[in-house]
Nucleic acid binder design. Structure first.
Lengths: 201, 201
DNA sequence: AGCACTATTGACGGCGTGTCAATAAGCTCG
DNA sequence: CGAGCTTATTGACACGCCGTCAATAGTGCT
């Protein structure tokens, strides 16, 4: 059952080989927890010696970091849409867009965010923290407090992004909340923050 | 430099030995990420053969689960205080109590919650999810919607607990927010949820 | 003192990981 | 077309950590 290509060594461009291994790693880390994925599995599925994985992505954790980066950079793309209208409309659009993105590729997104921490590992936390921060500034721009936000404003908005992540996890993993309920919760929370908490500082 | 007691075997009651090993494990897992803690370290610091750790707590993950359970059961104690007064007063008291508990033993709490996931491990997630759920029903009781809350109400309040956890992490790990700002954010968010989102369902 | 119970040990086998010299695939040039 | 060179790729090595289990030795009891 082994392919003929795997009998003979195939020599690929470094970029192509790296991309191929990365895709296999994404599939594995997306469906199983970190500890249950071995670099041997990834190498075997990629039809490649295990040492090559270490050659392209140093350690196993580095490979995992690359995977998480790919999984989290997906939502960044279409934040360029500038919603017009008053505050409730803009909030509705940004919340709806977030729920769209999250529910589309829910499994990988859940794997990336649910991996939040990997038992307190510093590097993984930093990658997720950066993604949360860019999402926070995106939210700030969407609600009209965009240009050059203060550090405290950014921090508060990071907290809101944390709420959004937790609520989306609650929505997707357990089935108890409907999308409408999730939407209402996130929208009214954001409006309350923008109107009552953010202006004070 | 080795203690005289460690030269000779010491025989302890199972409960005492288990407690001793657990305390050492708490110290280690509280200061280092999961992967960087070996059962060899724990056993050596406890002055005990490594096999004994496996004998009391089956696998390494089971030991870690016991540690996380201890770290998370701390906040449950004094939720029995029933704050009287109108909604803002009750919200203020519950938020202040939460921030007190969290800031008191911040390191272990951060280790337990920041471990949120351990890279998607099912068992660890379930332990944290249970702690979040009991916190959610505590919040619901504190705000007066306590008796027999519906599943959707519990789910929404779990989301709010997620916001509280993320905000506390933001507060304790980075230093950008003050306690007053964190308090205001959590209080107004909870009030908005109670007044505008919860009643609809 | 001798004995039985059991807490405790130490070694064994296995797995996963990171490293590094050796190998061969594919391109270039005579 | 063949020799040579670059380098992508391999395979084996050593190390560390984990779970298991029979063997060992504390400790109380008769």
């Amino acid at each position: 059952m082994v392919r003929v290509e795997s009998m003979r060594r195939r020599r690929l461009e470094p970029d192509a080989r790296r991309e191929q291994i990365l895709s296999v790693a994404i599939r594995h880390f997306g469906s199983r927890p970190y500890a249950e994925v071995s670099t041997t599995d990834v190498a075997r599925d990629a039809g490649v010696a295990r040492g090559l994985v270490n050659h392209y992505f140093g350690t196993k954790k580095d490979l995992y970091l690359a995977v998480v980066r790919v999984m989290l950079t997906v939502p960044e793309v279409a934040l360029e849409q500038l919603p017009e209208g008053d505050l409730p409309d803009r909030v509705d659009s940004i919340v709806g867009y977030f729920l769209d993105v999250v529910s589309r590729h829910s499994t990988s997104w859940l794997a990336a965010t649910g991996a939040g921490g990997m038992a307190g590992d510093a590097d993984v936390n930093q990658v997720i923290a950066e993604a949360v921060d860019v999402a926070a500034v995106g939210v700030l721009r969407a609600v009209g407090m965009g240009d050059d936000p203060s550090p405290v404003l950014r921090a508060m908005c990071r907290s809101y992004v944390g709420l959004a992540i937790c609520t989306a996890q609650e929505w997707l993993q357990r089935g108890v909340l409907t999308r409408q309920q999730v939407h209402a919760l996130l929208a009214t929370s954001l409006i309350a923050l923008v109107e009552q908490v953010f202006p004070v500082h």
